[in-house]
Amino acid sequence: MTLDTDWFSEPLASEGVAFSLRVTSKLHEERTPWQYIEVYETAHWGRLLVIDGCVMLTGRDNFLYHEMMAHPALATHPAPRDVLVIGGGDCGTLREVLRHESVTRAVQVDIDEAVTRAAERFFPELTAGNDDPRVTLRFEDGVAYLRQAPAASFDVVIIDSTDPVGHAAGLFGAPFLSDVRRVLRSPGVLVQQSESPLLHAESVIRPLHGALAEAGFAARATLHFPVPSYPSGWWSATLGLLGLEPEAYRTVTLPELRYYSAAMHQAALTPPAFCGTLFRPDRPAGGGT
């Protein structure tokens, strides 16, 4: 991260590119045992949350990520009741989960309580559901939590993690995903944020499909959608399904959504030609989405 006069910049040196926002003030900074948290006020993108120099969210475009992390997964399940969110300390994904009336229990497990407390202070629109009686917030290691969680105790598991480095790297491997499979009922849905299709197809998305297959998720699919403030502006989330197929999702109509719809769900499941079968490696070449 560089802060040059009144600009925040996140460079991606390996790709020779940077994303920059004009900032007007720094509102908060804090070093925790796990990471370095910063919050800025920007001139045009609302407030900006940064962790370890990387953009986590902006007030202007976070709805794109949070809606697509939650609603495709919950729409793919026929009747989601119990939902687990691993990570997601800013609580934006949790807020979207709570829009579904069928949900009776939502557990969020994030290792760093400081992220949630910063979100409550600086992004209260994201944390408005934290006092919902359906919600349990746990501040502990998600990997350890899953090892101890009862089998077949959740319908949907959402892995809303940071990039697969440091303490988050374990959330992308087959051992962790096998624990996710164990705690899922059948039918069940896992969704994992899976980085940029343009920049991370071979380093993240393809290995993630392999890890999901090794963990026992025969049906898998990667959805893609825009997030302008993330590297390349193009992001993805990958589904692992038990007893379900990606195309068999319900039409879900919810108030106040700004991006997600059944039409956008279908569009997100449609792979660009250059991705070939990467998004659905269980399908033969030339197969449909």
Rank of each mutant, 00 (worst) to 15 (best):
L171G: 12
L94F: 12
V180D: 02
G216L: 06
S203E: 10
Y65C: 09
P197K: 13
C275H: 04
D61C: 03
W234H: 14
R182Q: 07
L198Q: 12
E10N: 11
Y260S: 02
D179W: 04
D112T: 11
R22G: 02
A218K: 10
I51L: 14
V85W: 11
A13E: 12
Y230A: 01
G216C: 08
A119Q: 13
N62F: 13
V135R: 05
A106E: 09
P175C: 06
D131K: 07
P150T: 05
T270D: 15
Q108S: 11
P164R: 05
V17I: 15
E140G: 08
A119N: 14
L27T: 04
H200Y: 14
T253L: 09
R60G: 02
A79I: 00
Y260W: 13
A201N: 08
L137G: 05
R283P: 03
E15I: 06
A43E: 15
F225M: 08
L254N: 07
G92Y: 12
R134D: 06
H66C: 00
V103T: 05
G129M: 01
V55E: 10
F139C: 01
A201D: 12
I86A: 05
L12K: 05
A70I: 00
A218H: 13
V157F: 06
G243S: 06
T136V: 07
L242H: 10
L257S: 04
A248Q: 14
L126S: 13
M264G: 00
A118L: 04
S161K: 04
Q266L: 15
L126A: 03
G166R: 12
F122H: 12
S203W: 07
F225C: 01
L146Q: 00
R95W: 05
P281R: 01
M264H: 11
T136E: 15
I51M: 06
P228L: 03
A267E: 09
Y145I: 00
G173P: 03
M264T: 15
P124L: 09
E245V: 02
S229W: 15
P284Q: 04
P150M: 01
S229T: 13
P246M: 00
F279A: 05
R182G: 00
P78E: 08
V109A: 06
A262Q: 11
P164G: 02
Q148V: 01
L126M: 14
A267G: 08
L94K: 09
L84T: 06
T24E: 13
A248H: 15
N62I: 01
A285K: 11
A237S: 14
G286A: 06
H167L: 05
R182S: 02
V23P: 02
E29L: 00
S20M: 04
D61R: 04
P11V: 07
G216N: 10
A218I: 07
I205R: 13
G188S: 05
